[in-house]
Design a binder for these strands. Structure first.
Lengths: 326, 326
DNA sequence: TTGTATGCGTTATCAG
DNA sequence: CTGATAACGCATACAA
């Protein structure tokens, strides 16, 4: 079954030259229909599949997308869902996902270098971008194709590269409006210490939706414990509902009192405990990442992304309400 | 930098033949020390790295380990930690992890076939094994190297293949003993519907540790909601402490009353809410998987696994106590 | 020890 | 549209 069927076997079986088989596979339009059919049938019968190794050697293309396996510090993340979506979408586009690990920026660049020298991935998909990301510079400087899940925070305007992201501000704004609609006027925000692109973005949506109402907010380190403490202070200060920068702090906030709380990311925790949260459309994000990166790699591919560069895709999170604001 | 340094370049630089370079890399012992050093230095200076494509074409080895990207149904799993560990350990052993997706057994076998025909992974690492797993049969029947994270439930004795697993029974037994030591006599078990290898295994440890004390138990579908209901019944039946088959049901059980609860898997949720749980040594599991599989692939590798076939590794979970049983 | 020749499976080039 | 031939980078058998 896996008996190494080569292109020569197919050619023999279909009574054509090796080249014709290659043409049928790579440029079907230049081959006569009847011949094409015959070859395709031979391919089917013999169970032929291209050897990526041979193809890569010849073309320099590996059809591999490199992604970092996240270490998942606090653990309450959604990386696995993204990764699953990415693998699925990549597969549909004829690509595979190859993993690597790294502790920090510099070591990740080492990993890039190593991968490029050995497995030669065609592109990288980067996650968790933040201000002044060294990785994107390195890749861009070498003209290597990549896309990030996350906007290039900190490089205002210039240094722009392909990215896909979820509009955190739109999410928190929707959450805030939901609470306003329920009659709340004093809506607090439990955030992260300023300076993180994602955190600041999420905060901004809450600010925007609140208009000129009072801004009751506290910063945290992202832990549930600090989330609880922050929530207590906010409630004491008069907040009757809370929007949180993450499910982790929201989990803590829930312990602080009996006010409605909305988290962010819709992690498994939120589902399990019935916490309202903002769900990122991770499958769509993954699909967009694959879309962008494969279009860069092969601009003439069928169904190439309309619009062309610079390939910026911003998707909206959706509000998942699990408890009615009281 | 990534300017395609070939083995010929290295040879020229070191004033040796191409062959010698190959020897230095693949059979260092047959080359004179001085020459070896010179070649190694040339490799260093030029930043040479073997092309996996070329090597694969020649040797048929891809140095790729295929792993399925889990879909993470209920979400409260720990797959990402395992995957990270696997990528790390694989990297140390000179392998990379390549991902694929599948919905069920048959479609996973299609994925095997497809991968083997194109990327030719050297081995598969399977997770979530269960009774009568069709995948292992398919792989074993073709003599393809693989290891499973999880024992081959259901094939008693025979049909045995390499596996690495965590001793669930030992874990629940430890948890139960911990509660016994704290003075509890009526310790309930919130389990899964019988028939799952993992669930039955975890239950058995609780049974064993309890000796001839009463067996207060309830089955659930694994949801937090059913966990809560089950816990209520058990508490009503006199249970003063609960051991749970998973963190998800433990989370529910926590809502049921003020009795100590111990979950299983030490998911992020447990950490976040201070739930005691049994932590699987996932990094070790991953390392063992890589160890086993690379030994199968290359029995003469340096530091090959002692013991030889059939490569069965059973590791112990560790009890993480976050709340004192009251 | 070192050098030389050959092939792994593809695809690109170029004649027919 | 089809068929021959070369080349991708590496590893091996063989001869020197």
């Amino acid at each position: 079954m896996a008996e190494k069927v080569t292109i020569a076997d197919v050619a023999r079986h279909a009574n054509v030259s090796r080249q014709t088989v290659s043409n049928v596979l790579n440029s079907p339009e230049i081959v006569r229909e009847e011949t094409r059919q015959r070859v395709l049938q031979a391919v089917e019968e013999l169970g032929y599949r291209v050897s990526q190794a041979a193809r890569r050697l010849r073309t320099g293309r590996s059809r591999l997308l490199a992604v970092r396996a996240e270490h998942t510090q606090d653990g309450m993340n959604v990386f696995d869902r993204f990764l699953h979506g990415l693998t699925e979408s990549a597969g549909l586009a004829g690509y595979r996902v190859i993993l690597y690990t790294a502790q920090d920026g510099p070591s990740e660049i080492e990993a890039f270098d190593d991968l490029l020298g050995t497995y030669e991935p065609d592109a990288f998909v980067l996650t968790s971008t933040d201000y002044g990301d060294v990785r994107t510079e390195w890749l861009a400087g070498r003209g290597l194709p990549f896309v990030t899940f996350g906007r290039p925070w900190g490089t205002p305007g210039g240094g722009s590269h392909p990215w896909v992201d979820v509009d955190g501000a739109a999410g928190t704004a929707a959450a805030t409006r939901h609470l306003l609609d329920a009659g709340h006027e004093r809506i607090g925000f439990v955030g992260w210490t300023r300076g993180s692109g994602v955190g600041d973005d999420r905060r901004s949506g809450w600010v925007r939706a609140l208009g000129d109402r009072p801004l009751l907010e506290r910063d945290t380190d992202g832990s549930a414990a600090m989330g609880e403490a922050a929530a207590r202070e906010l409630i004491a200060a008069g907040a009757t509902a809370l929007v949180c920068v993450s499910d982790a702090v929201a989990l803590g906030a829930l312990q602080a009192g009996d006010v409605p709380v909305i988290g962010f990311d819709d992690t498994p925790v939120a589902r399990a405990i019935g916490l309202s949260s903002l769900a990122q459309p991770l499958e769509e994000v993954a699909r967009a990442c694959v879309d962008v990166v494969t279009t860069i790699l092969d601009p003439d591919k069928p169904g190439a992304r309309r619009g062309g560069p610079p390939y910026h895709v911003l998707l909206e999170p959706s509000l998942v309400i699990r408890k009615d604001p009281r």
